[in-house]
Design a protein around this nucleic acid. Structure first.
Length: 296
DNA sequence: CGGTTTTGACCGGCGC
DNA sequence: GCGCCGGTCAAAACCG
């Protein structure tokens, strides 16, 4: 059960939570466009983010970690806790997917290298499974980040409905699947805890919201342009990036994400995902991120 | 009563 | 071709 997440008086997260990742982050910050996944790091990040439509000032971003490649931490007021953006692709690239999809934060078995491997399958075509036969779903870009929090489900201003939960291979913690309750919104969210560090929650968003946030029901933030960026609605994201210089613990609130980028053309057509709606023209969020940061 | 959560089954991709 | 595993569906159970 970790599902209680929602039930508990979920406060918007305590800013007290800190993430330690940053310090160790040894992510491979490489960016692989191959799959369209993006990883935050250095200037490249900015470019990438720009492509996604995020207008972020470098100054505002937080650079975490090390010197060389810092990680940018998007912070949104909605969340609290620390977050770390992770990119799947990067990870994938770096890590070998030997394990298959282990998305997970794998833990135990992670390749000794690093981290993590968090990959979610390579997007080569990503056919994820489709719901119906014949219909292939195009996987939208995803954006993932890690948050140190006791609560699994972070409040981000949108309403989510859980539609599944699965045990993750190599991880004692189950992965929960959420879908935006807005009928027209096809955004999905995946939440799981790092097996390496149970205090870390890895949240992966897929798709982009086509509506405004509903506000924080339980007292949180409300306004913000969007807790999550609805790209269409809000071209510029309002993420707040706290300038963190410490390589380590930072408390932040998290963030947001969104964006869009389309993956190019994958096939855009069919999709299902959007089928409905979402103008996927723009793409959605980014990709995932590997938590592995802490390798070791 | 309506909406959400839970949970097992099913589907489909990928690696071996 | 087979097995493994991630992701999704859908019915039943819950909850406010």
């Amino acid at each position: 059960m970790e599902e209680n997440k929602d039930k508990a008086p979920r406060a918007p997260f305590d800013p007290e939570t800190t993430a330690e990742f940053a310090g160790d982050s040894s992510w491979p910050l490489g960016v692989d466009d191959s799959d369209g996944s993006y990883f935050y790091s250095g200037d490249r990040d900015r470019s990438i983010l720009s492509e996604f439509g995020w207008n972020i000032d470098p100054v505002q971003m937080n650079r975490i970690g090390s010197d060389t490649d810092g990680l940018w931490l998007p912070v949104h007021s909605a969340f609290s806790g620390s977050v770390e953006p992770v990119d799947t692709a990067a990870v994938a690239a770096t890590s070998s997917r030997s394990n298959n999809q282990s998305v997970s934060t794998s833990s135990s078995e992670d390749p000794p290298e690093k981290s993590t491997v968090f990959d979610e399958k390579p997007p080569s075509e990503i056919p994820s499974k489709s719901k119906k036969k014949g219909q292939k779903r195009i996987r939208q870009p995803r954006f993932a980040f890690m948050t140190k929090s006791d609560v699994d489900h972070l409040e981000d201003g949108y309403r989510w409905r859980k539609y599944g939960q699965k045990a993750v291979k190599n991880s004692p913690f189950p992965r929960s699947y959420y879908r935006c309750t807005n009928i027209k919104c096809m955004v999905k969210k995946r939440v799981e805890r790092s097996s390496e560090d149970p205090t870390i929650v890895i949240t992966t968003y897929e798709g982009q919201h086509c509506h405004h946030t509903v506000g924080f029901p339980r007292g949180g933030i409300t306004s913000h342009e969007s807790a999550f960026p609805s790209v269409h609605l809000v071209p510029s994201i309002s993420h707040i990036y706290y300038p963190i210089q410490m390589p380590i613990e930072y408390n932040a609130t998290l963030t947001s994400i969104s964006q869009a980028s389309q993956t190019q053309d994958e096939e855009a057509g069919g999709s299902n995902t959007g089928g409905s709606n979402t103008p996927m023209d723009e793409g959605l969020l980014g990709d995932i991120v590997p938590p592995g940061m802490r390798n070791r």
